[in-house]
Design a protein around this nucleic acid. Sequence first.
DNA 1: CGGCATCCTCCCCGATACTG
DNA 2: CAGTATCGGGGAGGATGCCG
Lengths: 120, 120
Amino acid sequence: MHAPDPYLALCPTRVVLDRIADKWTVLLLTAVAERPMRFNALRRRVEGVSQKVLSQTLKSLERDGLVTRSVFPTVPVTVEYALTPLGASLERTLAPLAQWSRENIDAIAEAQALYDARGP
Amino acid sequence: MHAPDPYLALCPTRVVLDRIADKWTVLLLTAVAERPMRFNALRRRVEGVSQKVLSQTLKSLERDGLVTRSVFPTVPVTVEYALTPLGASLERTLAPLAQWSRENIDAIAEAQALYDARGP
DNA sequence: CGGCATCCTCCCCGATACTG
DNA sequence: CAGTATCGGGGAGGATGCCG
């Protein structure tokens, strides 16, 4: 055996990336990190997510042990989503990306403009 | 005006996430970070990527100013991909994720097993 | 070697309607 | 309020073939 190779399909990095590298997972993770939130609050907070996909993504996050889903027997029922310690630690390692995005979005836009100006 | 809101569609974080949160971008970024690599070397290094998608993804990365594409007029032609400084800085902010994956893949698998055992 | 063109398939996701 | 059920279109991406 050798050390896990990030580029073979079954190594931890690949597995985790396959799980979180989609349109909404990271965004929801950071949204719930702000504060525990209810379903429709998340729906409003994260602009553009459909109710179906929100439901699916939250279920995946819950299954992976990254968020908790707490049901309160009010009428109507109240459901609150919050980060687990595991989810919180993932969110912390992802947080620098938001910082990087703010700092470098202009450089990216510039590179794109340059690239597009070159070749038709 | 207020500070950019990560959950509105047009904020930097959303834009960057939409660009890199796909099946292959992050993986290719870290692969090229190891050392500059040629097309087919990347193809072999990153198990499972098709030639078409590799080509597309590299083009996007080049357009965003994250990798360079250098053509050497040998016969047959040699093409080498390498990180730009911008790409290198992004790769550095993404690197902790690989570390986190190795450390927590077991906890995730455990959570999944627990979740699956509960409800049919 | 490093691609592009084409075809085709799958499944992601949005829209809509309904429920406890 | 917090979902599930169902349908359907579109796009990502795999397979194959060809080219400079």
